[in-house]
């Protein structure tokens, strides 16, 4: 009776040892979802029909010819979904990269150099932090005729970097006072090298976490804008699909195949990226790491065995 749970526990720990410690189930599920969606956005557009080709057949449910059915104007939903995945991911990545650079510039530089520069950067960050993204976009969108991908991405980036900059600033403030930074000053390192080589690597976990967060919020933000008709003109995104589905009264006509796929993609990607974020959090802060169920059961069994 006492040997059985022990061997089970040993088998579990041997299995866990084979995997690197950061490869948690959370990370693998989240990463798997994100990789699948990305591959779909990269590859599928080459194989689908023209997403804009109109057909007389009108709105038809899924069939052998149109796997995800057609829209009111007879356009293939699968083709639109493939291009929309590519469009949404493009917006998300552009915004996340821009937000990363902006937050790193204002957060790290201000935090490290301090003084009046820090005061000015903090003030600017706080002002941007309270800029409401959606109303700003509505104002800009109603003025600009040609809303290209870049314009939308820039506006989303400008309204989404501030929170990450504040986090980076406070982290930098804490790191710059540490002894190893003082020691590299004493060794004679130049300030830019102290920032890039001594401080930045210690900020990487925080930065990757805020990158993923920016990606999620950019894709959701773009979908929101497109849905109210202020999105990118001439490019398919998940939001624009939902916008046209709403206009075409897909819901009232029972055309679920038109609005469910883009909605499900948004939910799946958001969920996948959040799972990745949770596991990054777990790596940064081990206290948030939950013991896997199997290990918990094994410990429990060992305790029982000891009691018996």
């Amino acid at each position: 009776m006492t040997t059985k749970p022990n061997t089970a526990a040993m088998a579990v720990s041997a299995q866990r040892r084979r995997l690197p410690r950061f490869l948690t189930p959370t990370l693998m599920v989240g990463g798997g979802i994100v990789v699948l969606i990305t591959l779909f956005g990269l590859i599928a557009p080459f194989f689908v029909a023209d997403p804009n080709a109109v057909d007389n057949m009108g709105m038809q449910p899924p069939s052998a010819q149109h796997w995800l059915g057609t829209t009111q104007t007879g356009q293939d939903v699968l083709a639109q979904l493939a291009w929309a995945t590519r469009g949404s991911l493009t917006v998300g990545i552009i915004v996340a990269v821009m937000a990363l650079f902006l937050s790193a510039f204002f957060g790290i530089l201000g935090g490290y150099l301090g003084g009046w520069l820090d005061e000015a950067f903090s003030l600017f960050t706080n002002v941007v932090l309270i800029l409401p993204g959606l109303p700003l976009m509505i104002v800009i969108g109603s003025y600009v005729e040609q809303r290209g991908l870049i314009l939308i991405a820039v506006v989303l980036a400008i309204t989404s970097w501030a929170a990450a900059a504040r986090v980076l600033r406070s982290q930098t403030l804490s790191i710059r006072g540490r002894d190893y930074v003082q020691a590299s000053k004493i060794a004679g390192e130049r300030p830019w090298r102290i920032i890039a080589v001594e401080i930045l690597p210690n900020l990487l976990p925080v930065m990757s976490s805020s990158f993923v967060f920016a990606l999620v919020s950019a894709i959701l933000g773009e979908a929101g804008l497109s849905f109210i008709g202020l999105g990118v003109v001439g490019t398919h995104t998940w939001g624009s699909m939902l916008f046209y589905a709403q206009n075409g009264q897909a819901l009232t006509l029972g055309g679920w195949w038109w609005f469910v796929p883009p909605g499900a993609m948004i939910a799946a990607l958001g969920g996948g990226l959040s799972l990745i974020n949770f596991s990054i959090d777990g790596i940064i802060n081990p206290r948030l790491r939950t013991a896997p169920a199997a290990a918990r059961t094994a410990r429990h069994a060992q305790k029982e065995a000891a009691a018996a």
Binding site: Q182, I186, A187
Partner: peptide, 27 residues
């Protein structure tokens, strides 16, 4: 030059021991 009080804080956890010695030598 100076030796710090806390050896757990005075070495950068991200870098190898070699980095901590190579940099001052080169600089």
């Amino acid at each position: 030059q100076m030796v710090f009080q806390d050896p757990f804080a005075s070495l950068n956890p991200f870098h190898s021991i070699g980095h901590h010695l190579r940099r001052p030598l080169l600089l």
